[in-house]
Deep mutational scan, measured.
Amino acid sequence: GSPGIQSFLPPGWEMRIAPNGRPFFIDHNTKTTTWEDPRLK
């Protein structure tokens, strides 16, 4: 199987799917959430 997208996120980050189907990202380091992919910064 191919590695999940989770493995490509920075340490402490998690990806979830919102009720509307959009992915969002949780930064457990700062306890914040964002719509922006942290890998694109």
Rank of each mutant, 00 (worst) to 15 (best):
K31G: 15
K31A: 11
L9V: 02
E36H: 13
W13F: 05
S2M: 14
I5K: 14
P19Q: 10
P10W: 05
P38S: 00
E14F: 03
S7P: 13
E14D: 05
K41V: 14
G21Y: 01
R16G: 08
P19E: 10
S2W: 07
D37H: 04
G4M: 07
T32V: 09
G21W: 00
N20L: 02
Q6A: 15
W13P: 00
G12F: 05
Q6S: 14
F25H: 00
K41A: 15
M15E: 07
K41L: 13
E14G: 03
E14A: 04
P11I: 07
I5E: 15
I17N: 05
H28T: 10
P3A: 13
W13H: 00
I26L: 06
G21H: 05
W13E: 00
F25D: 01
W13M: 01
F8M: 09
N20G: 09
P38H: 01
F8R: 10
I17M: 10
L40P: 09
T32W: 06
M15G: 02
R22D: 14
W13S: 00
G12T: 02
T32M: 10
R39D: 02
F24M: 11
Q6R: 10
R39T: 08
P38M: 02
P19H: 09
T30C: 09
T30D: 04
P11L: 08
T33S: 10
P23R: 10
R16K: 11
G4L: 08
D27W: 02
P19G: 09
T30L: 06
H28Y: 09
T34P: 01
T32D: 05
K31V: 06
G12E: 03
W35M: 06
L9N: 01
P38I: 03
R39Y: 05
K31W: 06
L9G: 01
F8E: 15
H28C: 14
N20R: 02
E14T: 07
P19Y: 07
I26P: 02
I5N: 14
N29F: 09
S7I: 12
F24Q: 12
W13G: 00
E14M: 03
G12H: 06
K41S: 14
G4N: 14
I5A: 14
D27G: 00
P10I: 03
F8V: 14
L40N: 12
P3L: 14
G1W: 13
T30E: 06
T34C: 08
W13N: 00
A18Y: 05
T34Y: 08
F24G: 04
I5H: 13
A18P: 02
P19C: 15
P11A: 10
I5M: 13
Q6P: 14
T33K: 13
R16T: 06
F25Q: 00
D37P: 09
P38R: 00
E36S: 06
K31T: 07
N20D: 14
P10V: 04
